[in-house]
C-alpha cells in the first residue's frame, strides 16, 4: 500500500481535540474540523450539531483531491490553502503536512486575516502530532483489533 494506515489513539486524539477547541475560540470560528485526505472525520469542535460533518468531510476531501490534481497539472506539488466566501459563511481549508485537512467555518464575527493567522499556528502543532502518530502506527509491534477477529465474527456481521 502506498499510504500508511490511519489510526487514532486516545492520547493523540486528546491533543488534537485540544488544538481544534482552542482554534474555535481564538479564531472566533463557528466550526473547526480535521479530516484525513480520504474524507474520514478525525476531530471536530464548535457548533457541529448544525452541520452534516460526514458529508462535509467527504466533499472537502474530494475538493482537496481535485485541487491537488489541478496542482499536478501545473507542476505544483499542492495548493495548500483554499478559501470559499459565501454570504453568511466562509470556509478556510488548509492542508496540513500533506496528510490531513484542517477546515474552519466562520461568519462575519471574525476576519479572514485572524483565521489565517490562527490556522498557521495550529497547523504547525498538528503537523508535529501527526508525524509522531505516523511513527507510532508504523511500529510493527503495535497491537491491532484485528488479530482477535475471527472469520465467524465477520460472517456474523452479515447474518440478518
Amino acid at each position: 500500500m502506498t499510504n500508511p494506515q490511519m489510526v487514532m489513539y486516545e492520547e493523540e486524539f486528546n491533543q488534537i481535540q485540544a488544538i481544534v477547541d482552542r482554534l474555535v475560540k481564538e479564531a472566533n470560528a463557528r466550526v473547526v474540523f480535521i479530516i484525513d485526505k480520504n474524507g474520514q472525520l478525525i476531530a471536530a469542535s464548535g457548533d457541529t450539531e448544525q452541520i452534516d460533518t460526514t458529508s462535509l468531510a467527504s466533499l472537502t476531501a474530494g475538493n482537496i483531491a481535485a485541487t491537488g490534481g489541478m496542482a499536478k497539472l501545473l507542476r505544483e506539488s499542492e495548493f495548500t490553502t483554499q478559501f470559499h466566501e459565501g454570504e453568511q459563511s466562509n470556509i478556510h481549508i488548509q492542508l496540513v503536512g500533506n496528510r490531513v485537512i484542517l477546515v474552519v467555518i466562520f461568519d462575519n464575527k471574525t476576519s479572514l486575516g485572524l483565521v489565517r493567522l490562527r490556522v498557521k499556528k495550529a497547523s504547525e502543532e498538528l503537523n508535529r502530532i501527526f508525524e509522531a502518530l505516523l511513527q507510532k502506527v508504523q511500529d510493527p509491534a503495535r497491537e491491532t483489533p484485528f488479530a482477535e477477529i475471527t472469520d465467524d465474527d465477520i460472517d456474523n456481521l452479515f447474518n440478518d
Binding site: 494506515q5 487514532m8 489513539y9 486516545e10 486524539f13 480520504n38 474520514q40
Partner: peptide, 8 residues
C-alpha cells in the same frame, strides 16, 4: 486505506 479510531 482504512481508518481505525480507538477512541470512538
Amino acid at each position: 486505506m482504512s481508518f481505525i479510531n480507538y477512541l470512538s
